[in-house]
């Protein structure tokens, strides 16, 4: 498949609200001038705080909302104008909203969706069985959706969205409210399924673990504008986030304040454990370690990576809050 999966250019969306009959209108800009391209097979994370414009962008990409300005093409389609033909190749999971039939058994929802997507049994049955096995849905297929727990329901939603083997899988906050184990199982499944089929993944979230686990590329949006487009190491480097070398020494040593290109950030246990922060652009862990080892015998060490939340927060700060 050639061509970009998503091609957004100067995407802008404003909302006008009437504040009372007499006080006139009030315009907010939810998204402004967002441009990016997603190639086939990419796994992209779309990060932003609540209200930053994630959901609005997703709606414009999936055909729910028309941009106020700018253009977007999804799988070569104009999302709103060619909504139904786009819907055949698109799988969407809304974390806060259900696409399943509430009062029917889960199995029935699959049957209905297969009918809506006009899939003959020979095509959807094997896929259905595969999804049921991978997501472990067997135990509650016959239960009405409204009786399922949140974790069970989300697995059902993901299966429903992937039943027709979409080329683009879009998820909007899919792991909200799930426990750690369920989140991890969902992520593992998504990564495997998308990779195997060569599909593209776009994940809007504010959960950093989702991003770390699933995405190779990151788009960060803040107050409607795209402030970063690249991979995670690049983001770390961009905000100058630092790694931390933690050394446990054989014996207490005076604070190591003069290690070149590294700052001493903490001394613990009377000098036995010391933390040295350094920027990966200016030096390496090995170099810092060598300097420290030259001063005192090192018994144990570890390296702490910068916290993504921290990194993103720095990015927001850098973009001028």
């Amino acid at each position: 498949m050639s061509g970009a999966v998503v091609a957004a250019s100067g995407l802008t969306r404003t909302f006008t609200r009437r504040t009372g009959a007499l006080r006139g209108r009030w315009t907010t800009t939810a998204v402004e001038g967002i441009s990016f391209t997603v190639a086939p097979g990419e796994t992209v994370g779309y990060i932003g705080a609540n209200g930053a414009g994630k959901s609005t962008t997703i709606k414009m990409i999936t055909g729910i909302l028309v941009p106020s300005a700018g253009t977007v093409r999804t799988l070569g389609h104009e999302p709103v104008a060619q909504r139904t033909s786009l819907a055949r190749r698109l799988g969407v999971v809304f974390g806060q909203r259900s696409q399943l039939w509430w009062d029917l058994p889960l199995e029935e929802s699959f049957r209905l969706l297969a009918a809506i997507h006009r899939l003959p049994p020979a095509r959807w049955r094997p896929r259905h069985d595969e999804l049921v096995a991978s997501l472990e849905l067997e135990g509650f297929l016959a239960r009405p959706v409204r009786q399922l727990s949140l974790g069970e329901r989300m697995r059902g939603e993901v299966a429903a969205a992937l039943l027709h083997r979409p080329d683009l899988v879009v998820l909007d906050e899919p792991t909200v409210g799930l426990d750690v184990l369920s989140k991890e199982r969902l992520r593992t499944f998504l990564r495997a399924d998308v990779a195997r089929r060569g599909a593209t993944l776009l994940l809007a979230t504010h959960d950093m673990d989702d991003v770390r686990r699933l995405c190779e590329r990151l788009l960060v949006v803040d107050r409607g504008r795209l402030v970063y487009d690249g991979d995670i190491p690049g983001l770390v480097a961009r905000v100058g986030a630092r790694r931390v070398l933690v050394v446990d020494l054989e014996r207490p040593v005076p604070p190591l304040t003069d290690v070149p290109h590294a700052d001493l950030v903490a001394v613990e246990a009377g000098g036995v454990r010391q933390r040295l922060a350094f920027s990966p652009e200016r030096t390496t862990a090995a170099a810092v370690l060598a300097t420290v080892a030259g001063r005192a015998p090192v018994r144990d060490l570890s390296v702490e990576e910068p916290d993504i939340e921290d990194v993103v927060r720095r990015l927001y700060l850098a973009s001028g809050r």
């Binding site: 999936t62 055909g63 729910i64 033909s85 819907a87 809304f94 259900s98 696409q99 809506i116």
Partner: peptide, 8 residues
């Protein structure tokens, strides 16, 4: 909105 992402 969920209806809008279905092919009908």
């Amino acid at each position: 909105e969920t209806m809008l992402v279905r092919p009908q």
